[in-house]
C-alpha cells in the first residue's frame, strides 16, 4: 500500500481517500489500511521535525486522518481496537481554563500519538475540575497542560493542586507547554517539566515510560 502511504504523506487528499476505498473494497483489512495511515503520519511528523513540513501541513494531515478514519472505522474489528491499546502509555492533554490557543497543543498531541502514546485531548478552555476528574477516571501516565496566556499559570497550578488533593500527583507526570512557559513557570505551577517544543515531551515520555 505504498501508494496510499505516499498519498497521505504528500497530502493528496482525494487520491488518498480513493485509494482507501479501493483497498477496503479489495478486501484489505481495516487494520492494514489504518496502519498505512499511521506510517504516513509518522513520516509527516518526521518532516515537521526536519522543518520540511509546517503547521499548515499538520492541520491538513489531521483533517485527512479524520476523513480516512471515517472510511476505515466500519472495517475495524473489536480485536483491532483492543490491539491498538498496548501503547507506550496514556497522555491526557488540555488547554487550561481561560485560554483557547490550541495549535501548539494539537501538535504536541499529534507527536505523542505518532510516538505511540494513547492521547486523550480535552480541548480548550477546560475547567480545572474537568481535567482532574478525567485524570481520576482515565488514569493517564502524563497530564499535559497547554497555555499561552500569562493568565493560564494559575489554572495550571490549580490542576496540579487538584491532582495532589486527589492523591494522583505521584502517579502522573505533569508537563506544561506553550510559548510563555519556562523554568519559572514550571516551578510556580509545580509541574515536572515545561515544553516549548512538541518533541521535548515525547523524549521525556519515552524516558519515563520506556523502561516500564
Amino acid at each position: 500500500m505504498q501508494d496510499l502511504i505516499n498519498a497521505v504523506v504528500e497530502l493528496m487528499e482525494e487520491e488518498a481517500l480513493e485509494l482507501t476505498k479501493k483497498y477496503l473494497g479489495d478486501g484489505k483489512s481495516g487494520k492494514e489500511v489504518f496502519e498505512a495511515y499511521q506510517k504516513g503520519m509518522a513520516e509527516i511528523g518526521a518532516r515537521f521535525e526536519a522543518k520540511e513540513y509546517f503547521v499548515p501541513e499538520l492541520i491538513l494531515s489531521g483533517e485527512l486522518m479524520q476523513a480516512g478514519s471515517e472510511l476505515i472505522k466500519p472495517y475495524l474489528s473489536a480485536a483491532d481496537s483492543a490491539a491498538d491499546e498496548k501503547k507506550l502509555g496514556k497522555a491526557l492533554i488540555a488547554t487550561v481554563e481561560g485560554d483557547i490557543h490550541d495549535i501548539g497543543k494539537n501538535i504536541a498531541g499529534m507527536m505523542m500519538d505518532i510516538a505511540g502514546l494513547e492521547v486523550k485531548d480535552l480541548g480548550v478552555d477546560v475547567p480545572t475540575k474537568t481535567i482532574v476528574e478525567e485524570a481520576k477516571n482515565w488514569q493517564p501516565n502524563i497530564v499535559g497542560l497547554s497555555g499561552l496566556l500569562t493568565l493560564a499559570y494559575d489554572p495550571m497550578r490549580e490542576v496540579v493542586e487538584g491532582l495532589k488533593a486527589a492523591g494522583l500527583r505521584d502517579k502522573v507526570k505533569v508537563i506544561v507547554g506553550g510559548g510563555q512557559t519556562d523554568e519559572h513557570v514550571c516551578k510556580y505551577v509545580g509541574a515536572d517539566i515545561f515544553a516549548t517544543d512538541a518533541m521535548v515531551n515525547v523524549t521525556y515520555a519515552q524516558k519515563w515510560l520506556g523502561g516500564k
Binding site: T150, Y153, Q180, T181, D182, H184, V185, K187, Y188
Partner: peptide, 13 residues
C-alpha cells in the same frame, strides 16, 4: 524580558 518572571518570580528573580 520574559514576562513569566514578572508573573511567577520574585523581585530577585
Amino acid at each position: 524580558l520574559p514576562v513569566s518572571v514578572l508573573v511567577t518570580g520574585t523581585p530577585d528573580d
